[in-house]
Amino acid sequence: MQTLRAEWVKLRSEPGLVVSAVALFVATAGMALLSLSRAEAPACPPEFPGCELPVVDVVRLTLSGVYPGQIFAVVLATLTVADEYETGLIVTTLVGSPRRLRVVAGKAIVATGVVGLAGAAAVAASVLAGRLILPGRGFTTAAGYPPLSATDPTVLRAAGGTALYLVLVALLACGVAFTLRDTTASLVTVLGLLFVLPLAGAWLNHETLSEWTQRYAPMPAGLSIQTTVGPADLPISGWAGLGVLALWAAAAVVSGGASVTLRDA
């Protein structure tokens, strides 16, 4: 509890961390606003009335702010940990709290807690924006798109899953930072895992690898929870995908915990 209180004071007294939390909200909600206001419902050309139209996953579109937003979740979690190694403050932290796993837990809880709050707020704002903007872009009840509702289990699952996704990404970053003890190396590693790994298959033109990354790379796996249209042909189902991300995060945290307890400070 004391470690938690200490970590909370640290977070709120470091402008860089506060800015990261705000940026997480602004990027997530802002990107949602941008994509929503540019979206257009598919319509049949006048000469072919009654044509077959593709179904747009408006929930996924509404929650697309998570793509830029997660960068700030990663930055916040990484700075929380790696900045202490860069400034030498980790020594002060461990001298005050010699039980090291408590320090890992305290930092992880505070960082993911703040990311969770900012993420949940951003997701809620995005859903509200979707509800208000989508009908004006042609996504009307008549066209088969009822207004987004926070009580709709499909929307709730996708929105809650997105907030959870941000929390797990932050946890992953925490664990990596405790392992690598370096801001740049941690950021490169985590952002690489998230953004570059899913592209590896396509770059290498390797089909099996592509399939594998769609299923097991942290971002595509974790964000499959956002899919509300045609979930049957997904590489991995929503909750299983979040489970995969949770395993990545758990592995990183175990590695970080081992690094902190077994290595010299």
């Binding site: 004391q2 470690t3 209180r5 200490a6 640290k10 007294s13 402008p15 403050l89 932290t93 001298v95």
Partner: peptide, 27 residues
């Protein structure tokens, strides 16, 4: 009470907060 490296401070954190989190960590 110990002092190992006086340079080990977060440059953006104010002096009072630097001490407050340490106080909190030990109740």
């Amino acid at each position: 009470g110990s002092l190992l490296d006086p340079a080990a401070v977060h440059p953006r954190r104010r002096a009072r907060a630097h001490l407050l989190w340490q106080a909190r960590s030990n109740g």
